[in-house]
Design a protein around this nucleic acid. Structure first.
Length: 416
RNA sequence: GGAGGGGUGGCCGAGCGGUCAAUGGCAGCAGACUGUAAAUCUGCCGACGAAAGUCUACGUAGGUUCAAAUCCUACCCCCUCCA
């Protein structure tokens, strides 16, 4: 074992460690249970997405090893917008939008952590509680004096914003200071001594560690995890329809599952370490898998992650849908987790197939539907069809057809 | 406040009076090959239309012109430098 603390051992073996401040001292500190560490989120959308998953799972691990995760939502900092590594300014949200988003973010976190009042139960805080009350002059005198602009503009995270064609507003420049202040407050108010974050947060975290040292003459720790990228270096978590959201309202459990089912071969093991509760020894045995075996592991991966994020009970309907939709003789009638569209029997032949494809919502525009049809990408019950398609006359009300765009996007047409 | 440079499709980025629905790259979609993977190859990639074509779009609003992303005017926004 490389570390004294079980948390750091598991975190580093699973691939969560990128860099940290004073690692040795932090390791020592984490040997005892019930330590507090926090992770902050800005609440620019009403759901978290796959990109947030690394730090969330890191905190889940933190909890597993007996520590107390403090989840900080940035009710205050979101009003500023983190400029780190961004080349465009964040849109400024209204108070109402922030409030709405906050509710969504909270519910996204619930499946991953156990919240409560126990020693290792997670708690939720909001930095608006203290940031909103700050007064400018006192803040500058008490906190501002500890920050060196010379140093701040040296941070990698701000450098990009200082180049041509990009500007860093004074508003955004303050983000780092406020995040540092958060850390100081959490340290002094609730003895929270570690801040976790993605590697892009390094500059902000270090600022907080320094503020704590200067203000309280105490040592706080920073810990960053790598960004989630695919084996070929691309950012993970984007699909054709946008980000892979954690909230059911924004992405169905079925689509969530499909996302993991379709990851690159080269990423399966890495993701298994990061985002499942499967024991390390067991994953080690999987490392040699290839071909069909590896393909099967993706199902395991999808199952594991989905049952954490959406609950174990979500798996059965998903499996049912998968076998109905992807297997030639699958049973369509009992599928509940992919969209359905009801159509009158008489309209099946009356309306053109293009109309049906568009009105069922599987294609957004008629042009798109035509293009797909032309290239053979529209299927009825798994058979590629053309524009002159007409449904078999044997179909009657109550029958179900599977309409597909490409090989993966399916919808059920229910006749009535 | 002054001088200069910019704002083009999801992103980057050409075009600088007609041949521009706008080169190219990335991203995306479909097909072939596979394993619901990757790589590769092929096709597509504003809307409507069977098509001819029509409409909408190059920061916003006007104007010049037979014709404007391209010229003019005003305004808004961004960048750099000076005060």
């Amino acid at each position: 074992m490389k570390y004294k603390s079980s948390f750091l051992n598991e975190a580093s073996m699973r691939g969560f460690f990128y860099q940290s401040t004073n690692l040795e001292a932090m390791d020592e500190f984490l040997v005892a249970k019930g330590r507090r560490g926090y992770l902050g989120f800005d609440i620019t959308a009403k759901s978290l997405h796959v990109g947030h998953l690394i730090p969330i799972f890191l905190l889940r691990l933190f909890q597993k090893h007996g520590h107390k995760p403090v989840m900080l939502v940035g009710g205050g900092t979101t009003k500023i917008g983190d400029p780190s590594f961004k080349n465009t300014a964040r849109p400024i949200l209204t108070d109402e939008e922030i409030f709405e988003n906050m509710k969504g973010i909270k519910s996204c976190l619930l499946p991953f952590l156990r919240f409560g009042n126990g020693d290792s139960d997670a708690i939720l805080t909001n930095n608006a509680d203290w940031l909103d009350k700050l007064e400018y002059i006192p803040f500058l005198r008490e906190i501002g004096k500890y920050f060196s602009v010379n140093r701040m503009i040296g941070f990698e995270s701000v450098k990009a914003k200082l180049t041509e064609n990009s500007s860093l507003s004074f508003l955004e420049f303050n983000y780092m200071i406020l995040q540092a202040y958060d850390f100081y407050r959490l340290y002094s108010d609730m003895d929270c001594r570690i801040q976790f974050g993605g590697q892009d947060q390094w500059g902000n975290i270090v600022c907080g560690v320094e503020l704590v040292r200067k203000k309280l003459n105490a040592e706080a720790f920073g810990f960053t995890s790598p960004l989630l990228t695919t084996s070929d270096g691309k950012k993970m978590g984007k699909t054709s329809s946008g980000a892979v959201w954690l909230s059911k309202d924004m992405l169905s459990a079925y689509d969530f599952w499909q996302y993991w089912r379709n990851v690159n071969d080269a990423d399966v093991i890495k993701l298994m370490y990061l985002f499942t509760d499967v024991e390390i020894d067991e994953i080690k045995k999987m490392e040699t898998a290839c071909g069909e075996e590896l393909n099967e592991l993706k199902i395991r991966l999808a199952d594991e992650i989905t049952s954490i994020a959406h609950g174990e009970e979500s798996l059965h309907p998903i499996h049912q849908a998968v076998s109905g939709v992807f297997e030639a003789d699958g049973d369509l009638s009992s599928i509940t987790s992919i969209p359905r569209y009801t159509l009158e029997r008489s309209n099946l032949n009356a309306a053109s197939i293009i109309d049906i494809v568009v009105s069922s919502g599987i294609c957004a525009t008629r042009g798109e539907a035509k293009r797909l049809l032309r290239s053979g990408g529209i299927y009825v019950n798994g058979v590629s069809i053309g524009e002159e398609y007409s449904a078999p006359t044997t179909l009657t009300a109550g029958d179900t057809l599977k309409l597909s765009c490409g090989k993966k996007k399916h919808i059920l047409i229910v006749l009535e």
